[in-house]
Design a protein around this nucleic acid. Structure first.
Lengths: 146, 146
DNA sequence: TTTATTACCTATTGACATAGTAGGCAAAAG
DNA sequence: CTTTTGCCTACTATGTCAATAGGTAATAAA
């Protein structure tokens, strides 16, 4: 499950990309109002975004936050991983739990690995600019059924 | 994140499919020992599996659990959904939260929908028999990179 | 009819994560 | 030196996860 942290972070990125490019600093107050998210809670989120190398912050009058790269140079995967940690589907695959004694005989591990790769490719293949207002003739389409 | 409930359920299914087909009842004690999972905890899990229509249970001597269909008639998706509920990536898409006031203008919702479809197709496209011991010349391969 | 074996049921727990809130300090610009 | 902004620490309510504990009910064999 993607939590509010990841989803809100994405909305902050989109807000900055759409409304202001990466020219000037935007006060968090404005973003919070536009996005209808508690400013106090967003503070926590943007703090992680700054330390994760997604944004730059500036204090004082005229301060706020801005993107530190061009919008097309971000992908969704890295944004989500800054907020959520590694996008791993099962604990068997996330970091320190790599020492499962059953890993050589486990019948389900290959599937989790395949799944993880699919998820990784999906989110790292999506650029921030893919989420901005529609341009006609875009490539990606929803996969199918359900 | 797929929790232990989903993962353990899958291992129970595989255990039953591999060791006994759907001929006879297998005591939970045996499964728990083979899989090295607490029997007490498994009780909770198989209970849900019975009420979810995955297994049949029988009390008393000679009792235990067995599959109620042939192994090739299960897919991984339905097994996981019995244990984890709907495999939804974000709360915006899971059931009652479908009433988000931003849903018509949300820039991220299409991506979550696309993602959900991909996940759904992945797990519903995997049969239980795809997880059993290897047969050479099988189709599916891990997707790529990382 | 007793006994062993099995499933089935309710309740409780500790640890942790989520989604915030509260209040103040620090920096920068006018 | 005051206003605007970010930055920092702490706290909390609620819920989920991963179990554990202890009992009752059903069934087959002795």
């Amino acid at each position: 499950m993607i939590t509010t942290k990841g989803r809100y972070a994405l909305r902050v990125m989109i807000d900055l990309a759409e409304n202001h490019g990466n020219e000037s600093y935007v006060p968090l107050k404005d973003i919070a109002e536009r996005q209808e998210i508690s400013k106090k809670y967003l503070e926590i989120i943007v703090k992680d975004m700054v330390s994760g190398g997604l944004l730059i912050g500036a204090s004082g009058k005229g301060g706020g936050y801005k993107l530190c790269r061009k919008p097309e140079e971000y992908n969704v995967g890295e944004i989500l991983e800054v907020m959520e940690g590694k996008l791993s589907s099962v604990s068997c695959l996330s970091g320190d739990f790599n020492d499962c004694p059953r890993k050589n005989s486990c019948h389900t591990l290959p599937m989790w690995t395949e799944y993880d790769n699919m998820v990784h490719d999906f989110f790292y293949g999506k650029k921030l600019t893919d989420l901005l207002s529609k341009k006609k003739g875009s490539a990606r389409k929803a996969s199918s059924s359900k």
